[in-house]
Amino acid sequence: MAVIKAVSSKAGIGQAIDYVTKEEKTEEKLVSGLHCEAETAKEEMQATKELWEKTGGRTYKHFVQSYHKDEKITPEQAHRNALQLAENTPAWKGFEVLVATHKDKDHIHTHFIVNSVNFEDGHKLQWSSADLRELKERCNAQSQEQGLHVPEKGKTFEGAEREETVAWSKDTYQLLKQAEQGKVKSYVQDIALAVLDCKEIATSRETFIRLMNERGYGVDWQDSHKYITYTDLAREQAGEKACKIRNNKLEKYYNMGFGKEELEHEFERNARTAEVRAGKSERTAPRTEPTEPDRAGEQPAEGSLSFVERELRGIDEAVKSRTSKGRAEQAERRRTEQAAHQRAEEERRAVRERQRTASERHISRNWEPER
């Protein structure tokens, strides 16, 4: 019997990786990297963030797959199962994932640390409740195929109600647990998650507000007000008084930045990344060469008119010269940028190929199929 949980934590990605890769927690170092080397996962994930200028905000996603203590399964098999799940999770395509299996407790369990930034195109990880549900369904199907037990929907190993979210921080854990039990209004947690998701893709205040509106949340963001007020529009329309919350309250509950400054910094980073991904096409687009005025049939005049004609011709030639030079410079810049882009792409392909080969070699060397 196996269950999968999403883990919420205030710990940094480096601390999370250090924790799950401790030698005393892993059986024969059952640690593997998907799209990265297990030994250098921390450095590779950080390099990806710096490459796409997305070092802030949510830095990773953490999941745990756990087996019941009485389940007849070896650590090696549990690790292979976890790798199979990771490799076939659509939302993790293009993301570095560290997979570490532990046997330091009375049950075997595997940690997944998923980088929040895609190494292929730089977009932030989008993870929904539907994605988690699909992952759990594949976990159950995997258990059925191997003749293992499948937990009752919504239940833990012992038959109690399953908690969908856990956290390393005791305070955060209690707050999230209270929300799940209804002691804290659930709309507060829904708004917090919506803000975290929308700020990772928005490039401006206007875009952020639009994205929040599309999710059903109003955003009162005024320069004359110190705080941002978020509103659950459905609850407001239903006449519910408890439907609004300020960003400072969210910060108190979750110990994260939900204020104007934090959001605007994230928007700036997203905008810079969008500019890089667009290849700065607007600045490198060739300009249209002005055409020479059509003066067919124009008869040269005497005196001042012939002088004007000569001046016009001189201006035309100067324009042609500057335009030709400008186009040559643009063409050279484009060639330089294309060559640099090609070299970078070749380097990324080489890195990915080395990672894939090393990962396959590492797995085949340490985990032979059970006979």
Rank of each mutant, 00 (worst) to 15 (best):
E44H: 01
K325R: 08
E311D: 11
G14V: 08
N255I: 11
H62E: 15
G14N: 14
Q181K: 11
R333K: 10
R138G: 03
N255H: 07
R327T: 07
A285F: 00
C243V: 13
G56T: 09
Y254S: 02
L193V: 10
L250P: 12
L211A: 08
N88I: 02
I209L: 09
H68Q: 12
P151Q: 03
H111V: 01
K103E: 15
S9L: 08
N118W: 01
R354L: 13
A141W: 01
T21N: 06
E346L: 13
S116Y: 02
R210S: 15
H123G: 04
N247C: 13
G297S: 07
T40I: 09
K72N: 14
T288C: 07
Q342G: 04
R322H: 08
N366M: 03
T273E: 15
K177S: 13
A167R: 06
V188H: 01
A2S: 13
N140T: 07
V99P: 00
E214V: 06
S281T: 13
L175N: 13
Y173I: 02
E353S: 11
V219N: 03
H109S: 09
K29L: 11
L30V: 08
D104G: 10
E240F: 06
K124S: 12
N118R: 04
R313S: 08
K103V: 07
H225S: 11
E27S: 06
T203W: 00
E317A: 11
F95E: 14
S224A: 11
A350Q: 14
V308M: 15
A350P: 10
A78F: 02
K244S: 11
V150H: 06
A78L: 09
E206D: 15
T48A: 04
I363C: 03
E134D: 14
G94T: 05
T74N: 02
I315M: 10
G326D: 15
G154W: 06
A202Y: 06
A91Y: 00
E275T: 04
R246P: 01
S186P: 00
A339R: 08
Y67I: 14
Y254P: 09
R356A: 12
N248A: 07
L135I: 08
H68P: 00
G122D: 14
K226D: 09
L51Y: 11
R334H: 02
K280I: 05
R343P: 00
H225Q: 14
G122L: 11
W127A: 01
E87G: 10
H109G: 07
R58G: 06
C198P: 00
K103N: 14
G326H: 08
E206R: 03
G303D: 13
D220E: 14
R334D: 15
Q84D: 15
A82M: 14
F63G: 04
L196T: 13
E353C: 04
Q237V: 04
L250H: 04
Q181W: 02
S8W: 00
D121C: 05
S281R: 10
E145S: 09
D106I: 01
K93P: 03
E266V: 00
K10S: 12
T231F: 10
E87A: 12
E282C: 05
T229D: 03
